[in-house]
Simulated assay, not measured.
Amino acid sequence: MEKSLPAIPAKRYFTIGEVSDLCGVKPHVLRYWEQEFTQLRPMKRRGNRRYYQHHEVLMIRRIRDLLYDQGFTISGARNKLQELVQVERDRRRAGEVMLDGVEVIEVEDSRLEDSRLDDFEDSAPLQDGGAMFEQLLQVRRELFEIRDLLSAGH
Rank of each mutant, 00 (worst) to 15 (best):
G130A: 15
G17E: 00
Y68A: 12
P9D: 00
I63P: 00
A7T: 07
S115F: 05
H55L: 10
I63D: 00
D122M: 09
I74K: 02
R61V: 03
H54T: 14
M98W: 02
D100P: 00
A7N: 09
E145T: 07
Y52G: 09
R141I: 11
L112F: 09
W33R: 08
M43V: 15
Q70V: 09
E103W: 05
A10W: 08
R64D: 01
F37K: 06
S151P: 03
H154N: 15
G129P: 08
R46E: 08
V87Q: 08
Q138P: 10
I105L: 14
L58F: 11
E103G: 15
F14E: 01
E106W: 09
F133A: 13
R78T: 04
R141D: 05
I63A: 01
S115M: 05
K26M: 02
I8A: 07
N48E: 10
E96L: 14
R41H: 12
A77I: 08
P125D: 08
L40G: 04
F14D: 02
V102L: 15
R45H: 06
R61P: 04
L112I: 13
R141M: 14
L117V: 14
E145I: 08
R41I: 11
T73P: 11
M43G: 13
K3L: 12
F133N: 11
N48Y: 07
L136W: 10
A152C: 10
Y13R: 02
E88A: 10
Y32W: 02
D148N: 15
Q53C: 11
E36I: 04
G130D: 13
L40A: 06
F144Q: 15
G95S: 02
H154E: 14
D114K: 06
K3T: 14
V57M: 06
D100E: 01
E108S: 09
I63W: 02
Q39P: 02
T73W: 06
M43S: 14
G71K: 03
K26Q: 05
T38H: 07
A94P: 00
L22F: 09
M1D: 03
G47E: 04
E142C: 11
E134G: 12
R78E: 12
F14P: 10
F120M: 09
G24T: 00
E106Q: 10
S75K: 05
Q70W: 07
T38D: 14
P6N: 02
G71N: 05
G24H: 00
Q135D: 10
N48L: 10
Q138S: 14
S4P: 01
S151V: 13
D69Y: 07
V19Y: 01
D65C: 01
D119Q: 00
F133Q: 14
D109C: 05
G130R: 15
H55Q: 04
G76S: 05
L99A: 06
E142T: 13
A131L: 15
S115A: 14
D109R: 12
R50E: 01
Q127G: 15
L30A: 03
R92I: 13
R91P: 02
A152S: 11
S123F: 15
S75R: 03
K80L: 03
Y13H: 00
